[in-house]
Amino acid sequence: MSGITVNTKINGDPVEFICEADETLLDVLRNRLGLTGAKEGCSTGDCGACSVTVDGRLTCSCLVLGAEAEGRDIGTIEGMAQGEHLHPLQSKFLEHAALQCGICTPGFLVAAKSLLDKNPDPTETEIRFGLAGNLCRCTGYDKIVRAVQDAAKEMRSAKAKSAKTKTAAKKRA
């Protein structure tokens, strides 16, 4: 077996790695790049613990070959906080005790962010179906759904505020 050289972008940074043809993106992230935030719960796309985004689209990294990452833009849990600032979803998961053991948490956060990026004001049903590909065995999902609702609310009001400030700034100018 000869390795394949892959040039990709992970959380905005250019990354080059070599992998075997049968390695998944999850294998590459965890074993070659040391990004162990994505977890392997099933390796069949049924638990969502390995969720990442590829070119902005949510996917299970266990269902993507490492070689497919060539030229793509990969987003992982490690790229969610900006410096020392947690993403509102991360803060709300903590505040609402939306995690117990925490193994599913990175996958849920990546999936929830993807959901809110597309739909900033989801209904409870939309949240529940949006997160149906992520299994959690500890919480019964209640606190996760509440955390996503609360984060969505906060993100909407932050957006409204920044829009207001911008308008005000424009007016002043």
Partner: peptide, 9 residues
């Protein structure tokens, strides 16, 4: 077919 994750692919 599958979850939101699977739908992406």
């Amino acid at each position: 077919i599958g979850s939101k994750q699977v739908q992406g692919r």
